[in-house]
């Protein structure tokens, strides 16, 4: 029964993803100034939000881990960083593709872009640390401290680049969005949010299972040793 429900949910998610693509490629009107390339934004902006969300989860998990060394909090932090990075790379790759067709350059030293790039770099370092640094308790603590140090950093980078490029216009999306566009945007956001939750739960379970496997292995070798 549970398995059936799970499969039904997956099917529903696939249909929703298909619907989101239909909205992006068929339903919405083409933006008059930027042309079709503006359609990147229906997935790019939600991806940016989900990237932030993943890293916020990592931050919360890291604070929890530093506080009471709970393995749950650590798994939460690791899963958040994994998913946040996937969406972070999506943002970092699709953004320049849009910029090239709109601004004529791949990259601008603008506060939002720069702080995003730094955020992805910091959490990529976190990922490398957790992946290759060895799974000891000290490495987990190192990762947690890194995530906690990373959070105020984003604010500093933002301020610094704003000071440096004080004349740059703030918004890139534009305020007065067409109602059809807004509808499509919010539906895409909702669908991707559900995808995020699904992937996050799966990832969290995988990490917890791997911990359980490690514990079982240790117990087995102790039992055998006796």
């Amino acid at each position: 029964m549970k398995n059936k429900l799970y499969l039904a949910g997956l099917a529903l998610l696939s249909v929703a993803l298909f619907l989101a693509h239909w909205l992006v490629f068929v339903y919405v009107p083409t933006e008059p100034i930027m042309g079709v390339v503006q359609r990147i934004f229906y997935f790019h902006v939600p991806a940016a939000w989900l990237c932030y969300l993943g890293f916020i989860i990592t931050f919360i998990g890291s604070v929890g881990y530093i506080w009471n060394r709970s393995p749950r909090a650590d798994a939460l932090a690791l899963a958040g960083a994994d998913i946040g990075l996937v969406f972070g790379w999506i943002v970092m790759l699709t953004g320049p593709l849009w910029a090239r067709a709109t601004w004529g350059v791949w990259w601008k030293w603008e506060p939002r872009l720069t702080s995003m790039a730094l955020l992805v770099l910091i959490f990529a370092a976190y990922w490398v640390l957790r992946r290759y640094g060895g799974g000891t308790e000290g490495v987990r603590r190192f990762g947690a401290v890194l995530a906690i140090f990373g959070a105020p950093n984003i604010a500093f980078v933002h301020v610094a680049v704003k000071k440096w490029r004080g004349d740059h216009p703030g918004g890139v999306v534009g305020g007065g969005l067409d109602p059809d566009m807004r509808l499509a945007f919010f539906i895409c956001l909702a669908v991707l949010q559900v995808l995020f939750i699904y992937l996050f739960i799966e990832r969290y379970r995988v990490i917890r299972d791997e911990e359980a496997i490690g514990a079982l292995r240790r117990r087995l070798s102790r039992l055998k040793g006796r």
């Binding site: 693509h21 079709v36 990147i40 997935f43 790019h44 998913i83 790759l93 699709t94 593709l97 992937l199």
Partner: peptide
């Protein structure tokens, strides 16, 4: 170019999400 970049973008999104 606008069309090309749009396709590449969604290709990247699909690739990363499905790989993950």
């Amino acid at each position: 170019m606008r069309f090309r970049h749009l396709w590449i973008s969604y290709g990247i999104i699909w690739l990363l999400v499905s790989a993950f």
